[in-house]
Every structure is written in C-alpha cells, then in structure tokens.
Design a protein around this nucleic acid. Sequence first.
DNA 1: TGAAATGTTGGGGCG
DNA 2: ACGCCCCAACATTTC
Length: 499
Amino acid sequence: MGKMATPATLSNHKPILLWFRRDLRLADNPALAAALAAASAQGKPVIPIFILDESSAESRPLGGASRWWLGKSLTELDHALKQRGTRLILRRGTTLPILRQLIADTGAVELHFNRRFDPSGLTIDREITAALAALGISVVDHDGNYLHEPTLLKTLQGQPFKVFTPFWRRLSDRYTPGFLQAAPRQWPASTLSIASDPLASLQFTRPWSKPFEDYWQPGEAGAHHALGTFAEDVAEDYATTRDRPDLAGTSRLSPHLAWGEISVHRAWTGADANAENGGGVQSFRRELGWRDFNMHVLYHFPALPQLAWQEPFRSFPFKLDKAGLKAWQRGATGYPLVDAGMRELWHTGWMHNRVRMIVASFLIKHQLIDWRDGEAWFWDTLVDADPAQNAGNWQWVAGCGFDAAPFFRIFNPMLQGEKFDPKGDYIRRWVPELAKLKTRELPAPWKLSAEQLAAADIVLGKDYPKPIVQHEAARARALTAYRQISGKGDDAQADLFTV
DNA sequence: TGAAATGTTGGGGCG
DNA sequence: ACGCCCCAACATTTC
C-alpha cells in the first residue's frame, strides 16, 4: 500500500492522462495537482495532452485572434513542461477517438481534467466520460475554472439567478478562495515516447495577427506578470480608472482568464497585493463575478449565442446592412470614438471594456444591425473571446439578455468621448488622421467648419469618413423599433429604414 | 455600466 | 424696493 517504490519499467504501463483545455497553466490547477498526486502515490507517469477539436457539429470554430493566442499559449505551456522533463502532446481532430487511441497506445488507466460548462464542451465531456468509463478508465473531473461552478448557485426558490446583483451577493457571501497551489517543480519521470502533432499543423496564425505580439505576452508567465502589474500599479484606482480607455486602468487579464493561464482564484486573491487597494479590488472582484454570472447564464440557457433570452427581442426588426456592418468592422463609421475602438480591436485583439459597450450599442441601436453579427465579429477578432462572456455581454448591451441594460439606454458616442476620453488621447491614438484636431473638436468632426477642418489637414469623406448615421435621428429610430417589439407602439408602420 | 426632455429653483439684471 | 424675466444649475421623469 501507499508509497512503495515501483520499477520505472512497470510504472510506464499505466500512465495518467492530464487533459488541458481552457486551463493552460501549471499553477493553481486542480486536475494537474490530482494527476500528479495520483502518479506520485502509484509511481506512474503523467501525460499532458491538448486536443483541438473542431469536428463536432455544435462546436464553434475558434476565431482568428483566439487561434493566435492559443498557439502562443500552447507553445509556452510546452516550454514550461519541457523544463520539467516532459512535453505537451498535441492532437487535432475528434476528441473521443483521439483519447481512445492514446489510451490504446499508452495503456493509460486514468484521465483528469477541469470541468467546463459551455454547451459543446459539456456534450463532449459527457460523451467522453461515459465512453471511457465503459472501457474501465477512471475519469476524474475537477473544479478549477470558476469562483463557483454554475451548478452550485441557485436562488432560494431553487431557480437559476436571472439578476446579477443577488447572484453576486450570494457568490461573494459564500466565496472562500478555491484551489491554490504552486506549479510543480518537476514532472514524474517517464520513458514513454508519444508522438505529438507539430504546433504548425494546427494552423495558429492569421495574416493580421502579427502586431498582437507587440501588446501581449500569452502564457502563464505573462498572466502572472499582468496580475502583478495590476495589483501594484492599477488596482488601487480601478473603480474609476477602469472606465478610462485613454489610461492603463484595467487589468488586461481577460485573455489570460479566457485561456485559463491564471486561476480566477489567483486573480481574486492576488489583486490586493497592497492593503490600500480596497475599493478598487472590490470593484475588480465584481467583474470576476460577471464572468461567473455569464457562465451561469450560458449553462442555464445554452442557446445564448444564437437566441435572445427575452422573447420579444426575437422578432426585433434588425436591418440587413452589409455595408454598414463592414463600416463598423473597419472602424469607418465616422464617429471617432466608435472607430477608435474598432481599430484598437483590429490591431491588438482587444478593446477597452467601456468602448466595447459603446461600439456594441452603436451597432445595435444606431445601425439597427443584429447583435449576433457583432458577436460574431468579436468572436473572430478578440483574443479573449469566450462563449459565455461574448454572448452574455452582447445580449446585455442589446437589452435582450438576463439582467440586461434597458434598450432605451443608448450611448451617445460624443458624450462618452468627453466623459471618458477627456483629452482625446484614445481617439488620437487609434484614429491618427484626426490627431491635429483640438480636443473639443474630436468627438464630432462633421460639425466643424471648413476652416477648422482645413487647419487639421482633414477633408471629410476622404481622409476620414462622414458619419454613416445621424445620431439624433438614429436614436429616435431605435426607440421606435423598441416600442414596436415591446408592444407599446401604435406606430408599427413607422419607417425604420430612412436614417 | 445613459441621454434627453421636462420641471424646479435661485441669483442677478432690469425697469 | 419690488416684480418680472432670463437662464444656469440642479433634480426628476421619460424613453
């Protein structure tokens, strides 16, 4: 019993599989810790694997920016494993046959992973668990990705939460930091030789993703570095600076959390390195709470990425406007703050949170374009794209989700610029053709005189687009459309297509 | 985690 | 001195 030494030749016969998914880290990883503990107790090797499965009908292919990040992150993980004497085994294809083959090739008897709750992931995991259990494999899943897994929190009536604030109250009342454990210093020795698909074969590059390297350090080390910077320099004032896209006022942890390069428990506890960070840390933890809430919502409403939660919105009179969608995607709406955000997204794979709300509101409410078109664009271009966060936040802005912003809350891009980019630094950075304008001239260049434009070397419609919609009219049109679906409108025949 | 329209108040200019 | 008007500042309501 117990820790009796086992000859290495025998031990290799029954390895333990450690299946990485969106938890690409060695520290604070319950599945990893359990696999290593079992291996150590039984003298077995541990084989770390990652499977890129885009085969199942319901699984959504990764977006381009996510692919770029994943390739980098897997490289980092493989590097960290090599430092410990092993390496990451990569496979691309359908999960179950790949696992079956690995088990047949290695004689593995045990599989560990951290639970996930997105619909396609859940489907695959249930299938795997049943199929491998039938083969006599011990499949062990772990709690490693959320503050509270979505299966744990229910209202007093036993229902899923539909409103964030009570959800958050319950979560933060009950929360105690979950699994935290330093990365292992070494890996169990193994003589197994297992083939791995080369990273390049997984096609992780996209033509436009090159500049991302200037802005990000994917991988576990980069994640911890980002948290350290946040705790030291940013967290204290986070409650206010997080709304300022012109400042480095956010954590920038979202892609690291999306790929699980850092544990959400580590982010929770690590944010208050300084005792003075109180208010900012509370505000940051609330954002982590939104991450849990969105997963909670997706778990209980799996159609979230495709279907409005609130039924009246399912018949919202969206416009089919390919040109308008393209203008939004390219950052050519003629509204400088909107365009700045869309260009930041394109160049860096990320957009400041407040600006995300503004550009999303603009697409849905000013342009009357389906929120799912925006969701799809973000899915392709965000390095932090996550099925729950992306869909949940788009439905929130559209006003059709759980606890959503009311539809009649329509952002005014000019006002938002004055409030949250008061010196115009953010607009000037991402829309450099407007850089010579005076700060008060920046939010609405179409209102400027010929002299003002000339002084800044701008020809409107040539150097920078004219606005594709007119704010006041677009706002009125959105409210009309909203009244129409909410049943409050007696003007159902109102012309929604002339702004 | 809005904005605009509408309502109220109070100081100051003015006859 | 007083009432009247204007309007900025603030508050409330509406979308």
